[in-house]
């Protein structure tokens, strides 16, 4: 297990390197330097600035300097927010984004699996069909469509919840979290239903039933874990999807999270900020995927066994 984890962890390095490289060179081939947008600067100031940001060095030097910086977790100053470093911006925005994202993924996991199991146990019934119809709708309605509609209905018309903003109070969290969780709930419900039905048809479930165990024990003890394995492996993509979803959600609900900074940065061509967020989220996704992988292996004795050999 430990050996496998280490190997998986080392396997992340090429991806990470690729991410850094792509991000770095994309920025560097971008038309115009970061200070071109400002009014024309006197040549000596330009040179000074370039020296300060090491833009006078060769591309390769800059690349390795940047790598070094990133490894020491320093994303440099923001071009746009002049008094802030990218690190400070991330430190400010991330806790908000994390709260929303984490709650949403937990919510999606529990609600999604429960709906999926409910549908699987009543396969081909009205309950099943309506749940799956809603799940399909949940998959098909984009975040940025459902969010304004919910705001319109629950905030503007009904006035139950705030239409946006963030004050760390529960009411301000409800809509963003629910909107972010909805597509994942739908996906997880579909996956759970499919795998649960498949597991319930497997021979070892028949064995368990033949033992005279009650159906609820059969499901909890024998069917639940194998049925949830596909959901666990979906958690990786789900997390990635939520992180990109958070970008649009934070914008719609005016939440001061990392995604908001990112979009602002992107629209203002704040290269260091954009790159910092891309790398930060890239690493986060990699690490979370790695953890999901470990969880999957831990839940699946067959994989554990294969690794031991």
């Amino acid at each position: 297990m430990a050996k496998h984890s280490l190997r998986r962890l080392l396997g992340l390095i090429p991806t990470l390197l690729l991410l850094l490289t792509v991000a770095f060179f994309l920025i560097r081939v971008a038309p115009g330097g970061p200070f071109d947008a400002e009014k024309a600067l006197p040549p000596e100031i330009q040179a000074n600035l370039n020296a300060k940001y090491h833009l006078d060095e060769s591309l390769l030097q800059q690349y390795f300097r940047y790598l070094g910086q990133v490894v020491s977790l320093d994303f440099g100053p923001s071009y746009q927010y002049k008094d802030w470093t990218v690190n400070e911006l991330i430190a400010q925005g991330f806790p908000v984004s994390l709260t929303v994202g984490l709650t949403a993924i937990v919510l999606a996991f529990f609600v999604g699996t429960m709906l999926g199991i409910a549908a699987a146990l009543r396969q081909n019934s009205t309950v099943d069909y309506s749940l799956m119809g809603f799940a399909m709708l949940g998959i098909s309605i984009p975040n940025f469509v459902i969010a304004p509609i919910l705001i319109l209905l629950l905030a503007v018309y009904a006035g139950w919840l705030p239409a946006g903003g963030w004050d760390w109070g529960v009411p301000s969290m409800v809509l963003p979290i629910v909107t972010l969780a909805l597509p994942a709930i739908a996906y997880i419900a579909r996956i759970t239903r499919g795998s649960m039905i498949e597991v319930l048809h497997s021979n070892f479930i028949r064995t368990a039933r033949a033992k005279g165990l009650s159906e609820s024990i059969v499901i909890r003890r024998h069917a639940l874990r194998p049925a949830l394995l596909p959901v666990i492996s979906y958690l990786g993509p789900a997390i990635a999807g939520m992180i990109s979803g958070s970008v649009v959600i934070e914008r719609i609900f005016s939440i001061p999270g990392l995604g908001s900074y990112f979009v602002q940065g992107a629209l203002n061509r704040d290269y260091t900020l954009v790159m910092g967020v891309v790398i930060f989220y890239g690493v986060l996704i990699l690490v979370l995927n790695f953890l999901v992988d470990l969880l999957y292996a831990w839940l699946n004795p067959k994989i554990r066994y294969d690794q031991k050999r």
Partner: peptide
């Protein structure tokens, strides 16, 4: 394993 939506936005 790359965070695509972000790279695309970067692009």
């Amino acid at each position: 394993a790359l965070p695509f939506m972000f790279l695309m936005i970067l692009l």
